[in-house]
C-alpha cells in the first residue's frame, strides 16, 4: 500500500503541483510585502511554508523517495515552533501598543 500512494499522486501531472505551489508561494510573498498587519504577514509566511510542503510532498511522490515527506514533517514542526514564538511576540506587542500594525512600529527607523 505504501508504494501505491505515490502512484495515486502521480495521476496528476507534476506541473500542476509546481504551478499550484508557486502560486501559493507568490500569494504568500505578495502578502508579506503588501500587508501591514503583523498577523496577516505572519499568516502569509505560513502560506509560503505550506506551498513548500505541497511541493516537497509532490516531488517526494514523483521521485518515490520518502525524504521529501520527512522534510515536510520537519518543516511543520519548525513552523509550529515559529508560530509559538511569533504569536508570542505579536501578543507582547499588542499588550504594549494595543495594535498589530507594523507601520506603527517606528521606534526604530527602517
Amino acid at each position: 500500500m505504501e508504494q501505491t500512494i505515490p502512484e495515486v499522486i502521480r495521476t496528476v501531472p507534476l506541473q500542476h503541483y509546481v504551478f499550484f505551489a508557486a502560486a501559493l508561494f507568490s500569494i504568500g510573498v505578495l502578502g508579506v510585502l503588501t500587508r501591514r498587519n503583523a498577523i496577516i504577514i505572519f499568516m502569509c509566511v505560513e502560506l509560503m511554508l505550506n506551498a513548500v510542503n505541497v511541493l516537497l510532498a509532490a516531488f517526494s511522490a514523483y521521485r518515490a523517495d520518502p525524504n521529501g515527506q520527512v522534510f515536510v514533517f520537519f518543516i511543520m514542526a519548525v513552523a509550529a515552533a515559529e508560530v509559538a514564538v511569533g504569536l508570542g511576540i505579536i501578543v507582547m506587542i499588542y499588550r504594549n501598543i494595543q495594535n498589530t500594525d507594523v507601520n506603527l512600529l517606528d521606534r526604530l527607523k527602517w
Binding site: 509550529a80 515552533a81 509559538a84
Partner: peptide
C-alpha cells in the same frame, strides 16, 4: 476585551505538542 493570557499559552502549547504528535 483582551482575555487571560493563559488561554493563549494553552493554544501555543497545543500547536507545539500537536505537531510533535504528528511525528
Amino acid at each position: 476585551t483582551p482575555i487571560s493570557v493563559k488561554y493563549f499559552l494553552t493554544a501555543i502549547l497545543f500547536v507545539l505538542f500537536d505537531v510533535e504528535v504528528i511525528f
